[in-house]
């Protein structure tokens, strides 16, 4: 199971890197979304995918799944949620002001003098 998940995470990272190297700003933001999905799935996988009850003490099970990675993922999800919403609004503002979403045109004039 871990191998399958690792391959999936690898594919997510590949897609994320491809999208982030493109010219359109919206594709880049989609890429960051995929990147954080991959990272969160990776934490889950690296915590171990052994079978066990959900980490609720009311379950009275013999084995539970590891609760720590789930807490880490929850933290990482809300953080990336906040950052992504900021980034989306920033992209919207940049489009209003600069009238472009092409990263090549967002380069700025860098005069080497």
């Amino acid at each position: 199971m871990e191998v399958l998940m690792s391959i999936l995470v690898g594919i997510l990272f590949m897609a994320a890197v491809y999208l982030m190297l493109s010219r359109s700003l919206l594709r880049i933001i989609l890429g960051t979304g995929l990147l954080s999905h991959g990272a969160h799935l990776l934490i889950l996988t690296m915590g171990g995918l052994k079978t066990g009850a959900a980490p609720l003490l009311g379950e009275h099970a013999k084995f539970y799944t590891d609760p720590l990675p789930q807490a880490l993922i929850l933290t990482a999800i809300v953080i990336s949620f906040g950052v992504t919403s900021f980034f989306l609004v920033l992209a919207y503002r940049a489009y209003q002001e600069l009238r472009t979403d092409d990263m090549d045109q967002l380069r700025g004039k860098d005069h080497y003098e």
């Binding site: 960051t32 934490i43 690296m46 990675p69």
Partner: peptide, 27 residues
Amino acid sequence: LRESIKYILVNIISSALFVITVAYLYA
């Protein structure tokens, strides 16, 4: 606006890398 797009993008990538590295270290 122009520069903060790049700044945020770089830091999102490095934060994702940080999470990945912590995951490996935890494993």
